Simulated assay, not measured.
Amino acid sequence: MEITQKIENWASLHYPAWFDFVRMGLGVFLFAKGFIVLSQIDAVQTFITNINLLNGSHINWSAQLLVQFIAYIHIIGGLFMAVGFITRLAIFFQIPILLGAVFFTMPGIRMSAENNLAQGGVNFVWSEINLTHNPVEWWTALITLILLISMFIIGSGPWSVDKYLEHYEEE
């Protein structure tokens, strides 16, 4: 038996019913967050452009394309998570975005263009604690990432389109 089948069997036996509501709520949250990212596209583009400038590379990231990709992944993935349709695939595309959000919004980190490790890289340096920095965005990203990883392992649950389609195909 493959490891994924073992995880699937364990998850189906030990799945808490309330976790479906968490999955639905997180899906709605990511769906809404996608629209928030689209509404604040200028600020996110500036952030991505600053990372590129600090990097010192001449790679021309298309900030607009990247921001739209992130927003639409949140919108589509959040909708799929909320209804429980191909949940693990939707989560698979969300996890790298949330890893980046946790990494780039971490309190006490500042970006420096001076990098002694690699040519053209971004050096992340611990700085003094900045009391004016509001870490709410970081905590939100971290909790969302933890929930996504948990849902990726456990699966979509009994109240989902995936489970309905599974039972529909058996009949």
Rank of each mutant, 00 (worst) to 15 (best):
I3H: 14
T4Q: 14
E8I: 15
E8H: 11
W10T: 01
H14C: 05
H14I: 02
G25F: 15
L26V: 08
L26I: 10
F29T: 13
L30N: 05
L30R: 06
A32Q: 06
K33A: 10
G34H: 01
L38C: 04
L38K: 04
L38F: 09
Q45N: 04
T49C: 11
L53N: 12
L54P: 06
N55A: 13
S57C: 11
I59C: 10
S62M: 05
L66W: 03
Q68I: 00
A71G: 00
H74N: 10
G78I: 05
F80S: 13
V83C: 02
F85N: 02
I86E: 10
T87R: 04
T87A: 08
T87L: 09
T87V: 11
L89W: 09
A90C: 04
A90F: 07
F93W: 03
Q94P: 01
I95N: 00
I97A: 01
A101P: 00
V102M: 10
F104M: 09
I109T: 08
S112Q: 11
S112M: 10
A113P: 12
E114G: 15
L117I: 09
Q119S: 14
G120W: 12
W126N: 11
W126H: 07
E128L: 04
L131A: 15
L131D: 14
T132D: 11
V136R: 12
E137H: 10
E137R: 14
W138V: 07
W138Y: 01
L142C: 12
I149R: 03
M151D: 02
I153W: 08
D162L: 08
L165S: 04
Y168E: 13
E169V: 13
E170K: 05
E171Q: 06
